[in-house]
Design a protein around this nucleic acid. Structure first.
Length: 890
RNA sequence: GGGCGGAUAGCUCAAUCGGGAGAGCGCAGCCCUUACAAGGCUGAGGUCACAGGUUCGAUCCCUGUUCCGCCUACCA
């Protein structure tokens, strides 16, 4: 076997990664067609924003999906990972608006058509950025199936869904309060509003009763809205105010009079128990107003731009809402109408995009009547047709779905799917897939299309089937829907996952995916969320550049424990780069020691214990990795291979093999085992670290390569295990560890060869040890070994009592007897503690009679073992003490 | 206000069934043994947040408390 990359001392990812990625692309290995007869397995990528740059979240997300897809592909599945991007309406529009602003223009000056052109142009230039970055991560997406939420096929899907929902009465238009962003100048859905606790002021304002007889005091956090008050509400059960209901208030700073009304929603304990009612600017107040008979009127005093309207009065018109607040309070103070102001922490809604404080505003918008679809979506999860992993998230899902409100889907922006609705001068509304030529009612041709576009999430909700070709029914659709797994972070569980389930059930009559795996958030070292404003963002591409994609991916996977966020630090990646280096060097060693000689050998040539053992351990590892991945326990899978490669394969097997290969007879079997195990571990690791595994694998002897790429080589599973060999090997390992322990503890120099005696606990153990003396000799650093059952310890020896055997090392002249006595003292204290704990348990009648038989028996055996161990150590201590005394006397 | 999650070695985190807790990193000692010093061998290190309860037995199950995250909500 030629050495990988001509035997460089360490792995250098940079040159290698591009080479293999190109190779995979050239060979079309990312396409499901490489396994034409396999069972379909499909994942659709959560489409990143087309404006986006790869961040840690994407990196984790992509890594986990790639692990799954590569793993399934190697298992022979017709695996398909569909990539794509999201047109990200508001975000993308903002980017291009900023660009235009540099030319001192706004989008209205540019005009709608030209503006859209500009956005497409921008998309063409920069939109592929994140796709390119995903490739750097090693993502094995089928790029030939890449989609974009605004491409023709997906746009058709969007129109189809809109029209059908409209026809079924599940989409409607209504004018009511919505969340309005005065900066983006668009409506937002409830989900797009981020609530944040802020320190504010609670202002107590005196509202004079009509006719100048006294006043009511109301408390508010938004004094400026008083200009739009159309009532004051008190709880009808409130003794203090009951008599006022029905009377009028002289609303200060205006010349209006407003009524005092009763509403049970008013909390008597809060503030003064009287609340001003501003139906046009507060969701609660809107409700209160509607409940009155006749309803309280609505008066909009703040406009779409966040500035006061003419209705606010000449003095305030045109002022920004916050300037107005100051002025209103100032004016009220002058009139002595401010009773007090107190600090008050409350939560305020912000635009998720630009963080501007949301203004509730009454505007006509389109809504999806979500109740019926939500009901079905809840059922699908309850019945297990969609599994959410980890399960904990199901509760959040249910809670949200069961209190869900209708979904506002129209946005007052230009970049997105234009709402397929036209209005005729005659008042007719036309909802249609295609642009209508004339009004079906009056025949008029003066039709105006609704200027708004749809919420980006409306198109994302169709992603699992629109990407597969719906509303057509191509082969992909039949093969891959429902998809198998959806991998995402919890923050879009409602935004996206829930809506996909609803839309999938509605239009495909089946769930969009069977499993939803919710992964962690990647935080910084201190556990803080990464954000630009905090300046703690780590660029994944820099990490890839520095340590390679493999080390980075492995780190992410190894820390992706369910239900816990990842605190990311570069140190960890460094650690896993060492791991790759270990793999690299193991491969180098194997290559140096096998050359072409191994090809002739096969499994039948394997006779030595270490080889039987490592092959069995590989089988065991493969099983554990497979079952961990089956359950999305990525960290367990990664850690198990890590353990196997480093601890079992490198630390033990390779060291043993060095000795084993000195024996000409068993050398071929060992060479074969080295290659076979390396082959297995490369395959096991490939989904986690695709590049380095391919690089090494390609240098293996052809007999070990049954495919043109490791990507499509069979994933190890169901290999035979040899429990007897594992058990015997344990005995050998115990003997070696027993000696090493003495060496280490007593500080015996590595160069010093020891005379070792091993007292085996059984004939079996004795035979095993006898049969593997060369290994023990080399790894324990012994010049001679005497093995037997019932051997007794020489006078002057260090003793190590293990569970299957005892190790004696004559120490005369080698070590400080005093140090050995100390070591044994420590040992006996530990044994004694354990023993007394064990005995106490067995003397407890309740334990013996009530605990399961097995447990009691186990405890008895343990007790016996400990007693034996204690006796042996005591013997050694006595012996050494006598030596010690001799020495003192002599 | 409601809900969820977390608290385990110096740090970051694991632990299927309730039967005296593991790893990585770090630390200490010894070693450049020709795959690898990005390494090897050995070792130290724990009141499983706190208080009760259930149980023969609790890191694990139940109740409460404290602290820390997060989600959600119309007390102005």
């Amino acid at each position: 076997m030629p050495e990988p990359e001509s035997g460089k001392k360490s792995y250098e990812p940079k040159t290698i990664e591009q080479k293999w990625y190109d190779f995979w692309l050239r060979k079309g290995l990312f396409r499901p067609e490489v396994n034409p007869s396999g069972k379909p397995y499909c994942i659709v990528i959560p489409p990143p924003n087309v404006t986006g740059q790869l961040h840690m979240g994407h990196a984790l997300n992509a890594t986990l999906q790639d692990v799954l897809v590569r793993w399934k592909r190697m298992h022979g599945y017709r695996a398909l990972w569909i990539p794509g991007t999201d047109h990200a309406g508001i975000a993308t529009q903002n980017v291009v608006e900023r660009e235009i602003a540099k030319e001192n223009k706004d989008r209205h000056q540019v005009g709608r058509d030209e503006f859209i052109n500009r956005v497409w142009k921008w998309k063409g230039e920069y939109g592929g950025r994140i796709i390119h970055q995903l490739k750097k991560m090693g993502a094995s997406c089928d790029w030939s199936r890449e989609r974009f939420t605004l491409d023709d096929g997906l746009s058709l899907a969007v129109r189809t869904v809109f029209v059908r929902l409209y026809e079924e009465g599940l989409i409607y238009r209504s004018t009511r309060l919505i969340n309005w962003c005065p900066r983006c100048l668009t409506a937002l859905s409830d989900l797009e509003v981020e609530h944040e606790e802020e320190e504010g002021l609670l202002t107590y304002i005196r509202y004079p009763l009509e006719g100048g007889k006294g006043h009511l005091v109301v408390a508010t956090t938004r004094p400026e809205t008083m200009l739009g008050d159309t009532g004051v509400a008190v709880n009808p059960g409130d003794e203090r105010y009951r008599e006022f209901i029905g009377r009028m208030i002289d609303l200060p700073l205006t010349c209006r009079q407003i009524p005092i009304v009763g509403d049970t929603a008013v909390e008597m304990e809060f503030g003064t128990g009287a609340v001003k009612v501003t139906p046009a600017h507060d969701f609660n107040d809107e409700e209160i107003a509607k409940r009155q008979n006749p309803a309280l009127p609505s008066m909009t005093v703040i406009g779409a731009d966040g500035k006061m309207t003419a209705q606010a009065g000449a003095r305030y018109e045109g002022l920004d809402r916050y300037e107005c607040r100051r002025l209103v309070v100032e004016d009220l103070k002058k009139q002595g109408l401010i009773e007090k102001e107190e600090k008050y922490a409350h939560s305020i809604g912000h635009c998720y995009r630009c963080k501007t404080v949301i203004e509730p505003l009454a505007t006509p918008q389109w809504y999806v009547k979500i109740g019926p679809m939500a009901h079905e979506a809840v059922k699908a999860v309850r019945e297990g047709r969609v599994r959410i992993i980890p399960e904990g998230w199901e509760n959040s899902y249910f809670a949200w779905m069961e209190n869900i409100k209708d979904w506002c889907i129209s946005r007052q922006i230009w970049w997105g799917h234009r709402i397929p609705v036209w209005y005729c001068e005659c008042g007719q509304t036309i909802v249609s897939m295609e642009t209508p030529e004339k009004c079906p009612r009056c025949g008029g041709a003066e039709l105006k299309q609704d200027p708004d576009v749809l919420d980006t999430w409306f198109s994302s909700a169709l992603w699992p089937f629109s990407t597969l070709g719906w509303p057509q029914m191509p082969e992909d659709m039949r093969a891959f829907y429902p998809t198998d797994a959806l991998v995402t972070a919890f923050d879009i569980l409602f935004f996206w996952v829930a809506r996909m389930i609803m839309m999938g059930l509605k239009f495909m009559e089946d769930v969009p995916f069977r499993n939803v795996y919710i992964h962690a958030l990647v935080r910084d070292e201190e556990g803080q969320k990464m954000s630009k404003s905090k300046g703690n963002v780590i660029d994944p591409l820099l990490i890839v550049d520095k340590y390679g994609a493999d080390a980075f991916r492995f780190t992410l996977a190894a820390f992706a424990a369910q239900g816990r966020d990842i605190k990311f630090s570069e140190e960890r990646v460094k650690g896993y780069r060492h791991f790759i280096n270990k793999l690299w060097n193991a491969a180098k060693f194997i290559s140096m020691n096998t050359e072409d000689r191994a090809v002739a050998a096969g499994k039948d040539d394997v006779t030595d214990l270490p080889s039987l053992w490592i092959l069995s351990r590989l089988a065991n590892t493969a099983d554990e990795v497979n079952s961990a991945l089956e359950e999305y326990r990525f960290n367990d899978a990664a850690n198990r291979v890590y353990q196997f490669l480093w601890r079992e394969f490198c630390d033990w097997y390779i060291e043993l093999a060095k000795t084993g290969m000195e024996n000409e007879e068993q050398a071929p079997g060992i060479r074969w085992s080295l290659l076979c195990t390396l082959n297995g571990v490369l395959r096991l690791l490939h989904p986690f670290m695709p590049f380095v595994t391919e690089e090494i694998w390609q240098t293996m002897p052809p007999a070990f390569r049954d495919a043109e790429s490791i990507m499509i080589a069979a994933y190890p599973a169901g290999l035979p295990q040899d429990r007897a060999a594992e058990d015997r090997m344990e005995t050998v390992i115990e003997a070696i560890s027993g000696v090493r322990n003495i060496r280490g503890e007593l500080n015996v120099q590595p160069g010093v060869k020891l005379k070792v005696l091993v007292n085996a606990g059984s004939e079996d153990a004795a035979r095993t040890l006898q049969g593997n003396l060369p290994y023990i000799k080399r790894l324990a650093g012994a010049e001679s070994i005497l093995v037997g059952k019932g051997l007794s310890a020489p006078q002057k020896a260090a003793v190590n009592v293990m569970s299957r055997l005892e190790v004696y090392v004559p120490v005369e002249g080698l070590v400080d007897v005093k140090a050995e006595l100390e070591r044994l003292g420590k040992e006996i204290r530990k044994t004694d503690d354990e023993l007394s704990f064990c005995l106490r348990k067995l003397m407890d009648q309740d334990f013996v009679s009530r605990a399961p038989q097995q447990v009691v028996a186990k405890e008895r055996a343990k007790c016996q073992e400990l007693e034996g161990k204690k006796a042996n150590i005591e013997d050694s201590i006595n012996r050494l003490k006598s030596i010690f005394q001799e020495a003192e006397n002599g």
